[in-house]
């Protein structure tokens, strides 16, 4: 589904990704872990097409298409979703209007018709429940004045609405207390299916107690230096990142 080969990328002229390889098959859950500054978020943003992240080499193919040649909205329309580490506040932009515009754009790209108002509201209310979010959220401006936990839940809510093929969760656990973490994980798990793949970027193993990955990769200095099963995450938690980095150096 997603094939990343030898990806190198610069931010502000500084090389952050230094030859990253990753293969993600349909229905797979991959966790990417790594210390701060290892390039985790850069990788997530490069996949979504963020301006200012300059790809200098390698390739990213998504279902056979060259992803790097596409605009951010085209990537979203193809089924890629990025849950932001820091969701952006959009004061004055009504949530319902925003969600409708997003859902219709994605549905149109999938060859589906626009939802009528009644079906749209029904769908939204149903998905809000999964994330334990109140209906009043629909009347508010997108993320404006939301608490940290609300913002993260709103990201996952949007994901459940847009039903992407590949979801990238960028540090979704950061800033969440244990109850919010459980709710977010429930939302993510509710979306797991044999067709839908996910990449979970995280610093800590904690999230992976709730969202159990098929594969765990360790990213350091812009490359994946170790891959394994879910037990790798626990091992990392016990021994710390220096354990692998040290081995690597040896």
């Amino acid at each position: 589904m997603l094939s990343v080969k030898g990806l190198t990328a610069n931010v502000d002229g500084k090389q952050i990704l230094k030859g990253l390889d990753l293969e993600v098959g349909p229905g797979e859950m991959h966790a990417i872990m790594g210390p701060n500054g290892s390039g985790k978020s850069t990788f997530a943003h490069v996949l979504s097409g963020r301006e200012g992240y300059e790809v200098t080499g390698g390739s990213v193919r998504f279902e056979g298409t060259d992803l790097l040649g596409l605009e951010p909205e085209q990537r979203a329309q193809k089924g890629i979703f990025l849950a932001f580490q820091y969701p952006v506040e959009l004061p004055g932009v009504n949530n319902t209007y925003f969600l409708k515009a997003a859902l219709n754009a994605v549905r149109k790209a999938r060859g589906e018709t626009e939802l009528d108002a009644v079906s749209f509201m029904r769908l939204m209310k149903e998905r809000l429940k999964i994330l334990h979010l109140d209906d009043s959220l629909l009347k508010r401006a997108v993320n404006a004045g939301f608490s940290g936990g609300e913002k993260k839940r709103n990201e996952i809510f949007q994901m459940t609405l847009l039903e992407p093929k590949l979801a990238i969760l960028d540090e979704t656990d950061s800033g969440l207390d244990i109850d919010a973490l459980r709710i977010v994980a429930e939302g993510v798990n509710a979306l797991r299916s044999p067709e839908r793949s996910m990449i979970v970027v995280t610093h800590y193993q904690r999230l992976l107690d709730y969202i159990v990955p098929d594969y765990v990769h360790v990213l350091a200095k812009g490359r994946i230096i170790r891959s394994g099963g879910k037990e790798l995450a626990r091992e990392l938690e016990e021994k710390g990142y220096s354990w692998i980095a040290g081995e690597e150096a040896a």
Binding site: G49, R50, A105, V106
Partner: peptide
């Protein structure tokens, strides 16, 4: 903000 909206499939 613009990037955020575009990652949701909304044209620029």
């Amino acid at each position: 903000a613009l990037f955020y909206l575009r990652t949701r499939g909304i044209r620029a």
